[in-house]
């Protein structure tokens, strides 16, 4: 059942890709270019970030203080600010383009400069990350050993900004992203690491991993 859903979602996204119009693809991240970008990141201001969050109506999809009200959108609360900053840059450049939802984020990031992005990142960074309290306990699948270096089993962000926090995201969202990495529709990963990791995962494994992180 879920497999069919995944296939449908995949087909569907392919179709959406075909209809999208982002024009030129920006260059992929290398560890060198990413190190440069980190150096150039302005210091974020939480208060300005809160103001921007209200002005851009982020809460419509990402919820109050970054806790998403639906499975479609990721929660941003408690996320590694560097990841948020990068995500916003990737939406603006068009590198993060999976489907038409990306076009919404692309439109919203067009008016943002780097300072705005850093401010928003700082604001979400200080919020409390959501935890799924009512989910049935799922144990970590063996294949997850490969993930935990950058995405600790606690669900928090990886050490030294190695990976974003995955805890508390919806299963639906996590599977969607894994699929996007797997099929190279999301190419925002530095050095193509997530793409090659996701390649190795079966649908069942993706599902198990997503279920585990969702409940953290």
């Amino acid at each position: 059942m879920l497999k069919i859903l995944c296939v449908l979602v995949t087909l569907w996204s392919t179709y959406l890709m075909a209809e999208s119009r982002t024009g030129q693809t920006p260059p992929l991240w290398t560890s060198e270019s990413w190190a440069e970008a980190i150096k150039a990141m302005p210091k974020g201001d939480v208060q300005r970030g809160e103001h921007l969050d209200a002005k851009a109506y982020c809460a419509t999809c990402h919820g109050d203080k970054g806790v998403a009200p639906s499975r479609n959108t990721p929660s941003l609360a408690g996320q590694d600010p560097l990841y948020i900053y990068k995500a916003l840059m990737d939406f603006k450049s068009g590198l993060w383009h999976i489907d038409n939802k990306s076009l919404g984020m692309h439109a919203l990031t067009l008016p943002m400069n780097k300072q705005d992005m850093a401010d928003l990142a700082a604001f979400y960074g200080v919020q409390v990350r959501p935890h799924q309290t009512n989910a049935a306990a799922v144990s970590a699948p063996p294949v997850m050993a490969a993930c935990t270096t950058c995405h600790p089993a606690s669900g928090d962000a990886g050490p030294a900004h190695s990976g974003p926090a995955l805890g508390g995201q919806s299963v639906y969202y996590l599977v969607r992203q894994l699929n996007a990495f797997k099929h190279h529709r999301r190419n925002t990963d530095v050095g193509g690491l997530m793409g090659s990791m996701a390649q190795m995962l079966s649908d069942k494994q993706q599902e198990a991993i997503a279920k585990f992180y969702a409940q953290q």
């Binding site: 979602v9 569907w12 996204s13 959406l16 009200p69 639906s70 479609n72 959108t73 999976i98 038409n100």
Partner: peptide
């Protein structure tokens, strides 16, 4: 319709839809 700016409404629990 899935994965668009406009989220899907089908299958939403009644209470969720009403609250939103």
């Amino acid at each position: 319709i899935f994965n668009e700016i406009f989220p899907p409404l089908a299958g939403l629990p009644k209470a969720t839809f009403i609250k939103m």
